[in-house]
Computed example of a mutant assay.
Amino acid sequence: MSTEVRVPTLGESVTEATVATWFKQPGDAVAVDEMLCELETDKVTVEVPSPVAGTLSEIVAAEGDTVGVDALLAQISEGGAAAAPAAPKAEAPAAAPAPAAAAPAAKDVEDAPSAKKLMAENNLSNVAGTGKDGRVMKEDVLNALSGASAAPAPAAAPRAPVAASQADREERVKMTRLRQTIAKRLKDSQNTAAMLTTYNEVDMTEVMALRNEYKDLFLKKHGVKLGFMSFFTKACIHALNEVPEVNAEIDGTDIVYKNYVNMGIAAGTPTGLVVPVINDADQLSFAGIEKAIAEKGAKARDGKLSMAEMQGGTFTISNGGVYGSLMSSPILNPPQSGILGMHKIQDRPMAINGQVVIRPMMYLALSYDHRIVDGKGAVTFLVRVKEALEDPRRLLMDL
């Protein structure tokens, strides 16, 4: 008896994925719920477990193939009788021209489901595809509908020729879906928003002193370390209350003001940048924020974040200081109108009350969408963040 392994539901609005890694090969025995392969979507990875115990008899979608929801991934033969046909199946992936293996694979990587739906709705055919092996993507159909089907080709400048002596020292690796999504979203952000960045600096003396004084007691009571991120999150929430347009977004000709704060905390992972979201951060205590950051950070590093955990953010904080960055201009995370960039804490000589003293200083950067946020609002926001961090008591007094 043979059991099909198919692509599971990938999440809201996600219709396709790339087969990233096969943990089993044809002929291998598998147990119920044992991981067979890993799929990579735009933002998260999805593990596919075995539905039954038996022998993996055939892999239909190879590593690197693009598959839609419910597409056939593999076949599992239940019971010991499956061991016999496993040997010829193992040779099928290696022999690429074999028609028996090619036929089902080609079927599973045909035009993207979203593209086929659009073509059917608009009675389109013969749309030129830019995907793998000429696969028609949703963007290709949209371009065809707008009369710009040829536009994507000249958009990418041809690669400069490489000397023959150096060509064999290069390595070409296909971009992951996550990296492609990051590249597209960041470029879209630059093309869409009227992005501008304003800078300031903050004296971290008081925050560092408060943290050092209470960090042991905080850990003992709440079971989580007291970091700087909760102070910055609270300071941003405080500033967003005064400058609500930084927490708003543009929808057509409307401005949508949010009476809540879903704080995005940018996190670097081995596979790329992700931005998990802490919902209703304005309702959380310092301990609640630290726990949420620790939980989402661990999930990000392990690739366990769901799509829902990365959607709905209204404002973002990015901490380049953990990598040693002294100054940078963060890029907006659409459709948000503001992002705060934190940086490295560095001892610098400062003039205070006519005296030169050494203080732990950090540069702050606020990138904002000038279509909705005026310069006055942006500068006011950053000054309020600075004031709250230099005198944390202001947070308690709501000043």
Rank of each mutant, 00 (worst) to 15 (best):
A155L: 14
T130W: 02
S149K: 07
A151Y: 10
P152E: 05
K132A: 09
G147I: 08
G129P: 01
D133S: 13
L145P: 02
D133I: 14
A151M: 12
D133E: 15
G129R: 01
A153M: 10
A157S: 11
P158L: 10
E139D: 13
A156G: 10
D133G: 09
V141N: 00
V141K: 00
G129Q: 01
S149N: 07
D140G: 05
G131A: 05
G134E: 03
P158F: 09
L142T: 04
L145W: 03
A151D: 13
K132I: 13
A156N: 14
T130E: 06
A128V: 12
K138V: 06
G129V: 04
A156T: 15
D133H: 14
P154R: 00
G134P: 04
P158W: 09
V127W: 00
R135V: 02
K138H: 06
R135M: 07
A157Y: 06
P158N: 07
A144T: 06
P154E: 03
P158R: 08
P158S: 05
S146L: 15
V136A: 00
V141C: 03
A150T: 14
V141R: 02
A148L: 14
S146A: 15
L145A: 04
K132R: 14
S146M: 14
V136G: 01
S149C: 07
